[in-house]
Write a protein that binds this DNA or RNA. Structure first.
Lengths: 114, 114
DNA sequence: TTGTTATATATAAGAGACTAATATATACAG
DNA sequence: CTGTATATATTAGTCTCTTATATATAACAA
């Protein structure tokens, strides 16, 4: 629904926010969660997700744990303390970003920042 | 201030919105306007801007006109009717995007989209 | 008159992130 | 026994932007 170009840069932040908000999650659940929260407007594909998760792992922002559920292996990703800091910073940035976009999208009459 | 990765995909939309909102503008003015509106949080650099403007021109979304002001040449970019349609669509998309980001950034208690 | 800042446009190499396609495998319903 | 949902993962290629660079005028200060 929303052009992927517009949201692609925010996917890493979205992943961090979900892990911070909802605790340890596995990849498939992350994609489903984004789908539900945004009503399908933002799609977190596996090709985007796994490189993000693997990079977060290399950066020590998340750790993984394998769990078997219904005979299927699930890999849960959990934030580390460093990951929690990174998430907080990214979320702060995200909120600033939203504010900036709102200023551009819905300029107030008489407020021209001149 | 905001990581460029986060906003880079929205620069084209921002350019279209400014041209739609403020009429014909030249490149330098576009960069200054973004700087002022966002308080310096989003930077529209020339390396990003000119490829965007040239692409919009190839797509017949904008036309250019050269004008001399203070002995300096300025190249003004104006939306064509096609450009106006494209701008409207991109702005609609931008608003949806903002809404989606807000849902992620500030989830309402009790509202889990399950 | 020399240096600096602001104004003004533009390109190019390279980096980085993502998309689309593909591969694999289990569970369960009809 | 076929299709759908669940579940993880990689890769080639694309696209956009960043960083660096080039050019040139105007205004102002020292």
């Amino acid at each position: 629904m929303i052009s992927n170009q517009l949201y692609s840069g925010s996917l890493k932040t979205i992943v961090l926010k979900l892990l911070e908000e909802e605790g340890p999650m596995h990849g498939y659940a992350l994609t489903q969660r984004v789908e539900k929260i945004t009503g399908g407007k933002i799609k977190l594909t596996y090709g985007a997700l796994y490189p993000i998760l693997h990079k977060l792992e290399r950066e020590n922002a998340v750790v993984t744990s394998r769990e078997v559920c219904n005979n299927r292996v699930r890999i849960y990703y959990s934030l580390t303390p460093e990951g929690r800091s990174a998430a907080a910073e990214k979320i702060r940035e995200l909120k600033e970003f939203i504010e900036s976009l709102q200023r551009i999208a819905e300029p107030q009459a008489g407020l021209d920042y001149a």
